Amino acid sequence: MKTATFNQYILNFKQPSGTSRGVLNTKETYFIEIHEDEKKGIGECALFRGLSFDDDDDYESALEWACRNINLSFEDLQEELVNHPSIIFGIEQALANLKYQGDLYFPSDFTDGKDSIKINGLIWMGNAEFMQSQIEEKIKDNFTCIKLKIGVDWDSEKQVIKSLRQKFPKDKIELRVDANGAFSPEQAKIVLQELEELDIHSIEQPIEAGNWEAMAELCKNTPTPIALDEELIGVLNFESKKELLRQIKPQYIILKPSLVGGFSGSDEWISLAEKNNIGWWITSALESNIGLNALAQYTYNKKNPMPQGLGTGSLFTNNFPSPLALKGENLWYEN
């Protein structure tokens, strides 16, 4: 017989982190523990206020229901909690950890220390000097894929990218940008052309999510590949996922399991993307080291050779010990 409990935790950023949605100083998250036969499994229900589909007044009530009903089948839990994707994510982690114990969720060559995951270096928004200093640090650490947050001051951001591209051609460094829906459809057309001139790999979510018609037009005519990110949030059942990809036909999708229904929800998206020749990669969503560890183990087992977006574990002052270690652009598991 299993029992379960949950608790809230506030992560504090080492320094304010800028996105097009504002500056982040703290990150609220929840942990669920499942106990059975003197064993314990822990998972992170990585709620993202202002972004998660399940950012609602019923969140803790849903967690209480999950804990009371933890002995139901996972399918029954998933069906009841369909509107709380981050809770599904936490339960999946806790059940996997209950099985393997310690820091293990998905054993593999990665958790045996035999292989690593290549990740992109993330550059946060700020003034040109701040962004340039972050880029220099990533270059020094031998990153070959860099992702820049854009959309606050595009003219300044464009100059930063142009300066970087003059020093490092695309065969030396892959550049990705993430707009978080900052541009209007008309602005996006201009930005997409300017990005192509800078040899940009892809842009995440150039316009605000929810405007499928405008996004489909952009994806059809874009000179720079488009990756859907926030667009996937709240698209919860298989048929809706299928319809979104059919209508928009993006070049890529980006999966944040805490926002799209956990590992099982991500598996559905991956299956549909691959059937439609759409590329994909996995990105963290400001989880603590507990959720990030589980996410990295899951990601490794998906065997996607592209650089993944998993390098956020060092952002917080009050994070937890982690078996993950970043060596250059490679994420390793050190037991």
Rank of each mutant, 00 (worst) to 15 (best):
F53M: 13
C45F: 06
L77T: 07
L272M: 10
L244Q: 11
L244W: 10
L272P: 13
L255T: 00
N276K: 14
E129T: 15
E274T: 07
K303T: 05
E196P: 06
F6H: 06
C67L: 07
G113K: 09
A227M: 13
E157Q: 08
N221I: 11
E129I: 12
E75Q: 04
S116F: 08
A273P: 12
A209F: 06
G18A: 12
N304Y: 00
K27P: 03
A294F: 03
E36G: 10
E287Y: 00
Q297N: 03
I32W: 02
E136D: 14
R68A: 13
N319I: 04
A294T: 08
G50E: 15
P169T: 10
N330T: 13
A296M: 07
G328R: 10
R176S: 02
I203T: 07
E174L: 15
R21P: 12
A285M: 02
L228R: 04
I91H: 00
G265P: 09
I248C: 06
Q93L: 00
G18M: 05
K114L: 15
T3D: 15
D155G: 02
G18V: 00
G328F: 09
L324F: 10
P323K: 11
Q166H: 12
Y300W: 15
G43L: 04
Q78R: 10
N335S: 13
I91E: 01
A62F: 11
I32S: 05
L24N: 06
Y252H: 15
F6A: 04
S86M: 01
S202T: 14
P257C: 03
D54G: 03
I91D: 01
E239D: 15
K189S: 12
N127Q: 03
D171Y: 07
A285R: 00
S264L: 04
T3Y: 12
I32K: 04
W65S: 14
K256E: 02
Q132Y: 06
Q297C: 03
F263P: 01
A96Q: 10
T299Y: 03
G261H: 00
N304V: 01
L98D: 14
I254M: 12
L255G: 00
N127E: 05
F263A: 01
P169N: 12
L331V: 11
N180M: 08
D141H: 10
G313N: 07
S52G: 11
T5W: 05
A188K: 05
E334Q: 09
L244D: 13
K147E: 01
L272E: 14
K118G: 09
